[in-house]
Amino acid sequence: MNAGEARTLIVDVLASIAPEADFDRLPGGAVLRDELDLDSMDFLNFITFLHQKSGIDIPEADYPKLSTLDGAVSYLTR
């Protein structure tokens, strides 16, 4: 998966959880949970959908690496 594909996947998943958000204006370094008002269930669903669509296992210990859009892109493309 290249960075563009990863970003599209992440935004698609986030849009299904926070449909009202404007992702064109979302800074890559913004903390997603704060910026999009995600609770722990939302964040678990975010991780679950990313896992299901990318096949990448994402252990709990790695959650902090996916706290921003940029962080999640580099995690999925590493």
Binding site: S40, T48, D57, I58, E60
Partner: peptide, 11 residues
Amino acid sequence: NRERPPPERIL
């Protein structure tokens, strides 16, 4: 949770 994939994790 350490041994579970994301869909089976517990909050």
